[in-house]
């Protein structure tokens, strides 16, 4: 017997029935609530520090492995395939090609978003294949986005850049 089972019905087609706000607020379920203050500040390290600081300059930087000849992006201090230190730093362009995309309609709490978000993986011009960035696309109707679409970064004004991944506001279709 399920101890404490309340009048909760579940239609056979449903994938699951979550607790409602009322179930919690009216104490229909017995619970203990806590909001822990778990805070971190992750040291970016050699590779990502350089990358983040270059964002402030409006530039994307990658590393290069002379053995496999790959231009590695995002940069790291080792080539994970050859397992050796990288040989050089190289700037790559802030344009690229949509490799895959999705249109998201809800937030992590399953609440509808005011405006759908177009999430995409973009292969950057100048980086090796499969070396891309996961970011968002805007200034385009969701139904007009396609795999293979050429896009360009839209940067925050220099004074507003903080050396974070959102120094790029979004990517927009590249005309022509």
């Amino acid at each position: 017997m399920a101890v404490g089972k309340k009048e909760i019905s579940c239609p056979p087609s449903a994938e699951g029935t979550g607790l409602s706000d009322a179930d919690i607020s009216q104490k229909n379920v017995t619970y203990f609530e806590d909001h822990p203050n778990l805070a971190y500040s992750w040291t970016a390290g050699q590779a990502m520090s350089r990358f983040l600081n270059e964002l402030k300059n409006g530039k994307l930087i990658a590393t290069k492995c002379e053995k496999c000849r790959r231009v590695i992006f995002p940069p790291r201090i080792y080539c994970e395939l050859c397992y050796k230190p990288i040989d050089d730093w190289v700037y790559i362009k802030d344009t690229g090609v949509v490799q895959t995309f999705s249109i998201s309609f809800i937030d992590p709490d399953a609440k509808p978003l005011e405006k759908p978000v177009i999430v995409a993986v973009i292969t950057i011009d100048g980086a090796s294949p499969n070396m891309g960035i996961m970011h968002i696309i805007d200034e385009v109707e969701p139904e007009k986005v396609y795999i293979g679409m050429r896009v360009k970064a839209v940067w925050r004004p220099e004074s507003e850049r903080k050396g974070t991944i959102t120094d790029i506001k979004y990517w927009k279709p590249l005309e022509g």
Binding site: D34, A39, S41
Partner: peptide, 20 residues
């Protein structure tokens, strides 16, 4: 990298019985 170590350790306690 941890800014609130005490809270993180505290987060390992039984939430019903010990944490509160």
């Amino acid at each position: 990298d941890m800014k609130t170590f005490g809270e993180i350790i505290r987060h390992a306690m039984d939430p019903i019985w010990l944490k509160g």
